[in-house]
Amino acid sequence: MNCETCQLKELELEQDEIKDVLRCILHTIFFHRTLTLVRPKDVDCDLFEITYVQCGLPDLEKEVDEKINQFIAWVEKHPNRRSQVCLSFFDEKNKNPSWFTSKTERIYWEQWFINLHVISPKGHGKSRSSKASTSIRGKALEEASSKRAALGLLIQEVLFQIINFANEKKDHIPPISDRIFNHEISIPR
């Protein structure tokens, strides 16, 4: 079985935006690849004007959040680094079953690479006059909001990239079982 891979467009973001961005992307992928009967749930991003869909599976939500928190912890130790979060779907097959051993082998059939560049926000030096500092702060806020709006548009592009890939590549998907496909979320170590 061939493994299809999708490299998603790199997103440049700040640390406080990681949770929203990863939740949105990961849940959108899961929604397209969880073909069992689900109760979809609409979720609004906290920082962006984007609504995405979750499968409505509490265990999956918990797993995603745990992995995101682990990734944030890694980012704190490695600031200003390009990084990759990988979501893989696989099948498990028994490899050389014998009387004594039953080793299982993972056969990956799809991998999604979420490329992120986490940057530290620029700190503004202290200004002597309060008027000047106010204007600088105002400019910084304006800059930050326009930057966030631009990131929102990029996220939307990535979401359409997911939709495209999910619909183009379908022949490799194994038969639908009565549960969610085996998967793992890998973060840098």
Partner: peptide
């Protein structure tokens, strides 16, 4: 049918984007 399932999910998600 399986492909329709995926496409319908895409429509559902796009409606919210």
């Amino acid at each position: 049918y399986k492909r329709c399932m995926t496409m319908l999910r895409s429509v559902y998600a796009t409606l919210r984007f």
